[in-house]
Design a protein around this nucleic acid. Structure first.
Length: 456
RNA sequence: UCCCCGGUAGCUCAAUCGGCAGAGCGGGUGGCUGUUAACCACUAGGUUCGCGGUUCAAGUCCGUGCCGGGGAGCCA
């Protein structure tokens, strides 16, 4: 007999007859002559109710069928006489596949996020993390669907890189040698014969690919060795990085906005049951906020205009508002959470604070960069038009102190058939944070990697 | 890395001015003819994060280390 998923049972129009279910007991309630087991198999948030008659042979194994136990049940699916569920299963055969002794750490009641992080191997069995995993899965699919509908190619860029000019933070060194000390120069005999790192971005390689096959995107893990201790940073996280050929900053902003709004709509349509948990317990008003993101055009301003808004606000910021400097977190929060109360796209940043590959604007002082700032999570997208003019690119790289020899291949693409192109990176975990209202990145990734944390 | 806050039962927390360490939930046992985070009764459960100090007396005050959280920087 093939097992039936709980999701299919709960969505059924009519009973299926005699079925088999397998899952984990979330709770058991005993009366004198009857016991109820709430069974969850991860196919959806809700449980199916198993009804065990106290006089039936199945009742013999009830003591083992405690909270947390893995259970197999066979019985008749029938309309439920009780309130709270359409159908239930009258159990005929009950088998405990894997008992859960009394030291099973998960209670029927709510646990703190901090505690659950210490048992990340068991937290997928909670409602909240089960919901998060399903939402991550659905949104991954939605990302692929979004780009496929727009004729993008899904490309794979390397995780191992020899390029140290990526300009996006500290890198993890990769070595096969024992005793490679921190800060030590790479030694002879190492695997690649040159320093190797974990990638901080697939962007540079995605650019090369986009200049051959047109619009592409990557979706994969990236690594930052920054000692960042905040609820929004992890050392390993997933990024979506589209790169468009023959595109400019305007195209880039349009794509970023379309992507974020499309994913918000998708979440509302496909993840409603799971999102309802977050709307109720984690972030009241979440549905309204997602709907607003999906339906409302993003605010678009230049960096200079943003500085003007901040200066005119009369607000006493801790850091000065300076047209030559980057926006501070307090500035970004003010813009999207208080002033505009919506996602804000800020463009045309001062060249001096941005990496060499961003396209220099006609004013010679700013670059065609754009960040999407989202209420609650801050920068969710960062991107730019890429500098396609060889001489300008070389001058910018020199100003940033880069050696031409280490990125000759990148320059080659500007030497041969160079074309305008643009792209961005969207942090997948930050998107999930925005769409679930979860405040800590460690709670939207199954096994978070942060400074001093490499458990599981 | 810097600043602030915290660490008490398995979990979530309380403990007044330094004066006998507690509750709810969870666990165990028993009860209850259909429950919905079931309910009722009884019960077990403590290195108050570690080390050092002040004091007649420290969960409480001081020093230090470790761990957690929030904010900042860096960024997605």
């Amino acid at each position: 007999m093939k097992r039936t998923r709980v999701r299919n049972i709960l969505q059924a129009e009519a009973p299926f007859g005699r079925i088999m279910v397998k899952g984990w007991a979330r709770t058991r309630r005993d009366s004198k002559g009857v016991s109820f087991i709430e069974l969850n198999d991860g196919s959806c948030l809700a449980n199916v109710q198993l009804v065990v008659d106290g006089a039936s042979p199945a009742a013999q194994v009830l003591p083992e069928a405690a909270v947390g136990a893995a259970i197999l049940a066979v019985g008749e699916m029938v309309p439920s006489p009780g309130k709270g569920q359409k159908f239930e299963i009258r159990v005929e055969e009950l088998t405990v596949l894997g008992p859960a002794p009394e030291d099973y750490p998960l209670q029927k009641k709510r646990h703190s996020d901090e505690f659950l992080r210490t048992i990340a191997h068991l937290r997928p069995r909670t409602n909240k993390y089960g919901a998060l995993l399903r939402i991550r899965s659905d949104l991954s699919f939605a990302i692929h669907r979004f780009f496929r509908e727009r004729d993008f190619h899904y490309v794979q860029t390397p995780v191992l890189t020899g390029s140290d000019c990526e300009g996006a933070g500290e890198l993890f060194r990769v070595t096969t040698l024992d005793g490679a000390a921190a800060g030590e120069a790479p030694r002879a005999g190492d695997f690649f014969g040159k320093p190797a790192y974990l990638t901080v971005s697939g962007q540079l390689e995605a650019e090369l690919l986009c200049l051959g096959v047109g619009d592409v995107y990557t979706f994969g893990p990236t690594f930052r060795a920054e000692n960042s201790n905040t609820p929004r940073h992890a050392a390993e996280f997933w990024m979506v990085e589209p790169e468009m050929a023959f595109a400019d900053l305007e195209d880039n902003m349009n794509l970023a906005e379309a992507l974020v709004r499309n994913l918000a709509s998708f979440a509302l349509e496909q993840c409603e049951e799971d999102l309802a948990l977050f709307d109720r317990f984690v972030s009241p008003g979440l549905f309204e906020s997602i709907r607003h993101t999906a339906e409302t055009a993003f605010v678009r301003i230049t960096h200079a205009e943003a500085v003007g808004v901040l200066a005119a606000s009369g607000r006493d910021f801790q850091f000065p508002v300076d047209p030559e400097m980057d926006l501070q977190t307090e500035h970004e929060r003010f813009l999207c959470e208080e002033h505009f109360k919506a996602p804000v796209v800020v463009r045309d940043y001062p060249a001096s604070i941005k990496p060499f590959y961003m396209r220099l604007n006609e004013d010679g002082a700013t670059v065609g960069a754009m960040d999407v700032l989202a209420p609650g999570v801050g920068e969710i997208v960062g991107g730019s038009a890429r500098e396609e003019r060889l001489d300008v690119l070389q001058a910018r790289a020199r100003a940033c102190g880069l050696e031409e020899a280490s990125y000759w291949w990148y320059l080659d693409t500007r030497r041969f058939g160079s074309a305008p192109h643009a792209g961005f990176g969207m942090g997948f975990e930050r998107l999930i944070m925005m769409l679930t209202g979860v405040g800590n990145i460690r709670d939207v990734i199954p096994f978070p990697r942060t400074p001093n944390h490499l458990e599981f």
